[in-house]
Simulated scan of single mutants.
Amino acid sequence: MLYCVGDVHGFTGQLDRALQLIEADGGVDSPIVFLGDYVDRGPDAKDTIQTLIDGQTAGRPWTCLIGNHDLMFWRFVTRGITQDAHIASGKGWLHHRLGGNTTLASYIGAEDLRAATGLDGFAIDGLDPTPAGALNALQELAQKAVPQKHLDWIAEQPRYFETHEHLFVHAGLRVGVPLAEQTEDDLTWIRGGWIDSDADHGTMVVHGHTALEFPQHHGNRINLDAGAGYGRTLVPAVLDAGKWFTLDEKGRTALTPNG
C-alpha cells in the first residue's frame, strides 16, 4: 500500500488529521507521498514543515515533494524575490491571495512584522506591492527567523517520485515531453496544456496544485488537491492493489475515473 496527501498549505490541524486517518488504515509506519505546497494561506507553515522533517528524522517512509509555494517561500528568504512570471495576475508572494504573509507570520512575531511593514493586519491582509524598505526589512527578519534546516530541506526534497507504476509530481507535466526533459517549473507550476489533456502519459500521474472541491480520478491522472488552502478538508488517499481510495473517519471510499 501507498498513501498520498495533497496540498496542506500551512494547515497543521488538517495534516494531523490526515496522518491519523492513515495510521488508522495502515499503521504508523505507512509509506506516504506528500505532493508539496506545505506553506502559504494557512497559519501554521512553520509547524507543517517541522512535522514533516520530524517524521523523516524518525525514520518514517515519507517522500515529500516540493511545490511552487514552497519554492516561492525559499526564494523570498534566500533571494528577496516576491514576483513570479507564472502568476498571470501579477500578484506578488506577499499578497494575501498567494499567502506568503501568513507563512512569514508563522515564523516572525507580530511586533516585528508591524515594525517592518507599519501594518497591524499584515498576517491577514498581506502587503503587495511591497515598498522596497518593507521588503528588505521582511527578508532580513525572515533570514533570522526561518531555520536554515527548513530552507535546506526545501532545497533537498525531490521534485517527482516514481513507484508502483505511478508518477507523483506537484503540478503536472508538459504533455508528450520525456520526464528527463521536464523542468522544475513544469513539475511545480504547470496547468495550461496539462489539466485539459486526455493523453495517455504512459503511467498514472498523481498531482496536486490545481484546487478542487474533492479529489478526482481523470483516468490518465489523479488530482488530490482538495482545496485545503481555501478552507476545505484535506483528503488523504491510498493506493492498494492497483486501486485508489480516499480516507475519512468512516474508512475508505473508492476513487474511480470520473467517479
Rank of each mutant, 00 (worst) to 15 (best):
H9G: 09
G10F: 08
A18E: 04
L19D: 00
Q20D: 15
L21R: 02
I22V: 13
E23Q: 15
A24W: 05
G27Y: 04
G36M: 03
R41E: 08
G42M: 05
G42Q: 08
D54Y: 07
D54L: 13
Q56T: 09
Q56V: 13
G59N: 00
R60Y: 10
R60K: 15
T63D: 01
L65G: 03
G67T: 03
H69R: 06
V77M: 03
T78E: 11
R79Y: 09
G80P: 06
G80V: 07
H86W: 12
H86Q: 09
I87H: 10
I87L: 07
A88D: 11
L98C: 13
L104K: 02
A110I: 08
E111S: 14
G118V: 12
F122A: 03
F122M: 07
I124G: 00
D125N: 09
D128E: 05
P129G: 08
L138Q: 04
D152E: 15
Q157D: 00
E165L: 06
G172E: 08
L173W: 00
V175P: 04
L179F: 05
A180I: 08
E184N: 12
E184Q: 09
D185G: 01
I195F: 12
D198Y: 03
T203D: 00
A211W: 00
E213C: 07
E213M: 15
P215R: 09
Q216S: 08
H217R: 07
I222M: 14
A226P: 01
Y230D: 07
Y230I: 02
R232A: 13
D240M: 12
L247F: 14
L247K: 11
E249T: 11
K250S: 15
R252H: 01
L255P: 02
T256R: 11
T256P: 00
